[in-house]
């Protein structure tokens, strides 16, 4: 049995919230630079340059890349050989999020009830997804997710008869209808299979992948490549002002499926694609 202290988890989560919001990943920065090489629109180039400059300011001053510091979506991989000492794991995560968003001067964007809309004032509750497996490690990923791009996301229940082309048409159409709203250039997360809610989680989880990484299954690697090409033919471009770079990446995650169904979810991420992880 490995013992991990409650306080260590809380403090690690607080740091992840701050780091994820202020320090953009190297892969995203590289994607902006790669985008500059293929973007033909002068306005589009100007925006990519501004995003690079913004990233530098945020890094230097440890201030948020975007004012929408998001929902704190937390992915936990808990080894069955781990015991948390001094309190409950979920309490440590929630307290860590509250501390990170308060101490890090991050925006508190969560309201207590969807209709009565009173701010919880510390950005809790975090949304926590837990996967329990063998081993004595505890991996925690914090993925702050902005609301504007979340609003452009969708789940659709397709049929097997719709095939791969049905999936592709839905994904491309979802990006097309999003236009300038989700802060392009976007990252497109696609979940295929599972149940109604499972495919949405696949789409969200796919957004954790490193930009530039290739899907291990050649079938889906080809699909991602084709989807990225089709999305970038839409002409939406950086911030929707017209251009070639509408998306930086398309990531697909697939899962076994019921014989009667073929659900597909598209979860759009803005260019501020933020996530940081730690293993305790």
């Amino acid at each position: 049995m490995k013992e991990i202290q409650f306080d260590a988890i809380r403090d690690a989560v607080a740091k992840l919230c701050i780091d994820a919001n202020c320090l953009l990943g190297d892969d995203v920065v590289q994607a902006f630079e790669d985008g500059l090489k293929i973007e033909e629109s002068p306005a589009g180039k100007d925006i990519l340059n501004q995003l690079l400059e913004n990233e530098q300011i945020a890094r230097k001053e440890m201030m948020p890349i975007c004012q929408d510091t998001g929902w704190a979506v937390v992915w936990v991989k808990l080894g069955s050989g781990v015991r948390v000492q001094g309190g409950e794991l979920y309490d440590a995560i929630q307290q860590g999020v509250a501390r990170g968003y308060t101490d890090g001067y991050l925006r508190k964007s969560i309201v207590k009830d969807p209709l009565r809309r009173v701010n919880t004032k510390d950005n809790t509750p975090a949304i926590i997804y837990t996967d329990i497996g063998p081993g004595d490690g505890l991996e925690i990923i914090v993925q702050p997710k902005g609301g504007g791009s979340e609003n452009m996301s969708e789940v659709k229940m397709l049929s097997a008869a719709d095939g791969a082309e049905g999936i592709k048409r839905f994904v491309v159409d979802r990006v097309a209808r999003s236009k300038a709203n989700p802060c392009p250039p976007v990252i497109v997360g696609v979940g295929i299979g599972g149940t109604f809610e499972k495919c949405a989680m696949l789409a969200k989880h796919s957004l954790l992948r490193e930009i530039g990484s290739v899907h291990p299954d050649p079938f889906y690697a080809d699909m991602e490549k084709e989807l990225l090409e089709r999305v970038n033919k839409l002409g939406i471009g950086p911030q929707g002002l017209g251009g070639r770079v509408t998306a930086l990446a398309v990531f697909v995650e697939a899962f076994p499926c019921h014989i009667a169904t073929m659900p597909c979810a598209v979860n759009i991420n803005c260019h501020a694609a933020r996530h940081k992880s730690v293993t305790l």
Binding site: M63, P64, R107, G148, N181
Partner: peptide
């Protein structure tokens, strides 16, 4: 259309980009 992040000590305002207008 903006909901800024909180100002740190010494800052006028925190990060302050636009939100979606529709």
């Amino acid at each position: 259309y903006v909901g800024p992040s909180p100002a740190k000590p010494g800052q006028v305002i925190g990060s302050a980009g636009p939100t979606t207008s529709y």
